[in-house]
Design a protein around this nucleic acid. Structure first.
Length: 475
RNA sequence: GGCGACGUGGCCAAGUGGUAAGGCAGUGGACUGCAAAUCCACCAUUCACCAGUUCGACUCUGGUCGUCGCCUCCA
């Protein structure tokens, strides 16, 4: 039975969807005004594994992840400067060109990491009418008020405000650095709709004049549009608990009178020397930069080696460790080859069954991927021992299926190296045969020269007993 | 000031009341023409520190120290 840590109650809880087998999942997507860094990678890999595991458990999941292409401000509430607009000015492009460019970049990086595409990737800019409707409803129901061209949510009208984050009282430091907009009734009130200044490019007409939606509105509006008023799981980064998710709850529940989200899931940060990786500190490493030095699957495995609710401290040493680990998995997978279905022995059947059962136990426990990986590594050791002996195609097939289901299927770690139409694989086989032939004939100099050349070109050679050699491309 | 999280071997990282998973690195051995891979063995009497509860605590309670996140957009 899957249990998930629910931020709402701050403990693990058995997961039961509202309408099994259907599960609705909403995850806060990126604001597309820059390339993705490792922090984005960790977050979206974590939720990708959630999705994959839910599907492995035969749930029918609808996964919505927004693209924020409007409405977030750069810093202070009074500057009124849109992030996208600012970036557009820097790059001398239209804001929508910026959105398009970085949306493409985001999807490219996520594809590289092996994340499955969301079922729906709604753009905030494409859902302005829904957001305006939501604001109207909130005004009608007395949860929001208009001041000039601005509309604010009246926090005092919603008793549960602050419940998720535990910020109930008024002890928060507020207005120390931000100049609190003085037309608010209460400093804690947050904007639903803001009047656009003269220079504001991204703006829409509304009952309150030309403006743009508040920072938190889009997720509520799009979540309700595609997943209904109450959703099963809402995910996001830990830093979004307050204010973003708190505001989403207030808006949504005030408007519908129903519970907005049943399970709140938050993933922890990537840190660098103990400090949060992020835009503001400028200490981020872009995924594209990582991919130039490490195979994307190395990065993925690196992320999965720690729990999603633990911070991940970025280090090259950690990545190197992940690389060695991945090589171990790849090497085992490659030793199994491409076996055909057949009868398998009891020993292998039992090993495979026990592994799958232990793997599920780890994953059921709030997606314990480090634990699940430990189970896989134990399996690989046992499998390697079996491969030393003479095992049948059927046995190998069982083991390969397990790897494909769990490691590739659930964890999303691809274990078959891409080759162009199989030609690389064929060449490796032929070169392996050649080295085997040379060794058999004790032409060691030639055999070693071949091995050296292959190493230079980025291939490893493994000699097996019986004069057989294998050639595999390096990571 | 308020809310919250964390501190496990050289590095990374699970475990959360019954006597420390796994990965990386390292050491010794087997195998090998040599290497690599693989396998075997070794590698924390101990889980920041101090009290307490308990037959028993890394795991619960209280305290101390240290680190970090959020309270401003951020995955």
């Amino acid at each position: 039975m899957l249990s998930l840590y629910n931020t709402k109650i701050r403990e693990k809880q058995e997961f039961t969807p509202i309408n099994p087998p259907f599960v609705s999942v909403y995850v806060c997507g990126p604001t597309v005004y820059g390339h993705s860094h490792l922090g984005h990678g960790k977050s979206y890999v974590s939720f990708d594994v959630l999705l994959r595991y839910l599907r492995y458990l035969d749930y029918k999941v609808r996964y919505v992840q927004n693209i924020t292409d409007v409405g977030h401000l750069t810093d202070d509430a009074d500057s009124g400067e849109d992030k996208l607009q600012k970036q557009a000015e820097l790059e001398k492009l239209e804001p929508m060109e910026i959105a398009e460019k970085y949306t493409a970049s985001y999807f490219h990086d996520m594809d590289e990491l092996g994340n499955l595409r969301p079922d729906i990737s709604p753009r905030a800019s494409g859902h302005i009418p829904e957001q305006i409707d939501l604001v109207k409803t909130l005004i009608e129901k007395g949860f929001a008020y208009q001041v000039g061209g601005n509309v604010y949510f009246d926090v005092s009208s919603f008793a549960d405000y602050g419940k998720l984050s535990g910020r109930i009282g008024d002890q928060q430091k507020s207005g120390t650095r931000i100049s609190v907009a003085d037309d608010k009734r209460n400093p804690r009130d947050f904007a639903l709709w803001l009047e656009a200044g003269k220079d504001h490019i991204l703006k829409w007409n509304s009952p309150w004049g030309w403006g743009y939606p508040g920072w938190h509105l889009e997720c509520s509006a799009m979540s309700m549009r595609y997943l209904g008023q109450t959703i099963d799981i809402h995910g996001g980064g830990l830093e979004n608990v307050f204010p973003h998710h708190e505001c989403e709850i207030a808006q949504s529940e005030a408007a519908t009178g129903k519970e907005f989200v049943r399970y709140w899931m938050h993933n922890n940060m990537v840190t660098v020397d103990g400090r949060k990786m992020g835009k503001s500190l400028g200490n981020f490493t872009l995924l594209s930069e990582l991919f130039s030095r490490w195979d994307p699957m190395v990065v993925r495995l690196y992320i999965l080696r720690s729990h999603y609710r633990s911070p991940l401290d970025f280090s090259d040493q950690g990545l190197a460790g992940a690389k060695s680990g991945l090589e171990r998995l790849l090497s085992f997978r490659s030793r199994c080859g491409h076996p055909k279905v057949g009868t398998s022995t009891q020993v292998v059947d039992e090993l495979v069954a026990a592994t799958e059962s232990d793997f599920r136990k780890a994953m059921d426990d709030d997606l314990n991927t480090p634990g699940a990986l430990a189970v896989i590594f134990d399996f690989v050791r046992a499998g390697n021992i079996l491969l030393e002996g003479n095992i049948s195609e059927g046995d190998k097939f069982q083991m390969v299926s397990l790897l494909d289901n769990l490691v590739t299927g659930v964890l999303g770690v691809e274990l078959v190296l891409e080759s162009n139409g199989g030609s690389t694989e064929d060449l490796c086989r032929i070169l392996g045969e050649l080295r085997g032939y040379l060794r058999k004939n004790k032409q060691f100099q030639e055999a070693d020269k071949l091995r050296d050349s292959l190493a230079e070109a980025g291939f490893s050679v493994r000699d097996l007993p019986g004069g057989i050699s294998e050639v595999t491309p390096d990571l």
